[in-house]
């Protein structure tokens, strides 16, 4: 599944961070990081615990503001001052802890916060357009080949994989161009992980840019086009999947021996010592 990577990384990136830094007190969670994701490309974001992966995703989703650096979207610099700015650009985030309402059905969850109302007068008391929402929900789930017992099923009664699929599908209701996923398969079994990975491939087929954090290198190699390695808040390299190996990625993550593009090389030892 690497066929699209070549063409995808050729053009201008959809979302790009340039020289982004973020501190938490004395901790430099991100240190002058450059990051790109193109349309129709899946980028795997890997790194050790505390490497800054979640922080990087939160900068992209507008939850954290970088102290320095540029946020570029579709070729121009944008000001992203909060999550709603990122959402407005078309950057959707699927949260690690599944922000779903268990008591609501699939349709209601897909549209929560942006429900459609039927036309006509009546202000805040206008009726929800359930039929329109159900129709759109069914179409969206069909294009993503997400299989559910019913779109009117309560989300709390779905399996973990189905819930994660609903959470991912939800990010697509509002015309997303980039989807950010933080550990989407962390809590899932083998079959359900496969389900979610297939869904990520389908997001790529729809021409979206996808950033996925994962600890599982086998999953990463299965689904992504490019691997971006973070180490201690710095970019340790970026690797096209077809040109790299598990060993090379692991050493970039840990800072041992070979570096991807040379940047990881040589820094490993001094930073090991600094710890």
């Amino acid at each position: 599944m690497t066929a699209t990577s070549g063409s995808a990384s050729g053009g201008e990136p959809l979302l790009a961070l340039r020289g982004v830094s973020k501190r938490f007190g004395a901790v430099r969670a991100l240190d002058r990081v450059d990051f790109d994701v193109h349309a129709g490309e899946v980028v795997g974001l890997v790194g050790d615990n505390g490497a800054g992966k979640s922080t990087l995703v939160k900068v992209m989703s507008g939850i954290y503001l970088a102290e320095e650096g540029e946020y570029r979207f579709e070729g121009s610099e944008r000001h992203v001052g909060g999550p709603s700015d990122a959402t407005a650009l078309g950057v959707a985030t699927v949260y690690q802890d599944l922000a779903l309402c268990d008591n609501l059905d699939v349709v209601a969850n897909l549209f929560v916060g942006r429900e459609e109302v039927a036309g006509g007068a009546g202000g805040v008391l206008r009726a929800l357009d359930e039929a329109a929402m159900e129709k759109q929900a069914a179409e969206l789930l069909e294009t993503l080949t997400v299989r559910l017992p019913s779109v009117r099923q309560e989300v709390g009664l779905l399996s973990g994989g189905q819930r994660q699929s609903v959470a991912i599908a939800r990010s697509l209701i509002g015309e997303a161009k980039v989807v950010l996923l933080d550990e989407p398969t962390a809590a899932l079994g083998v079959a359900q992980t496969a389900q979610v990975l297939a869904l990520i491939k389908r997001l790529r087929e729809q021409g979206l840019g996808v950033v996925v954090i994962s600890h599982n290198l086998a999953n990463v190699f299965d689904v992504v086009d490019r691997i971006f390695v973070l180490r201690l808040g710095r970019k340790a390299g970026t690797f096209a999947v077809q040109d790299t190996s598990h060993e090379e990625i692991v050493s970039a993550i840990t800072g041992a021996e070979f570096g991807g593009d040379g940047r990881g090389n040589g820094r490993g030892a001094e930073e090991e010592a600094a710890r």
């Binding site: 999550p83 709603s84 959402t87 949260y95 922000a99 779903l100 309402c101 268990d102 008591n103 609501l104 209601a108 929560v112 916060g113 942006r114 429900e115 109302v117 805040v124 008391l125 206008r126 009726a127 929800l128």
Partner: peptide, 28 residues
């Protein structure tokens, strides 16, 4: 009953009751 089941406000009440953090992230 109409307000709770058929309006946007009612849906938001149910969403907050189901998962307030999810509702907040969804812009409610």
């Amino acid at each position: 009953d109409y307000v709770v089941r058929r309006t946007r406000f009612g849906r938001h009440v149910l969403a907050v009751g189901g998962n307030a953090e999810a509702a907040r992230r969804a812009g409610i």
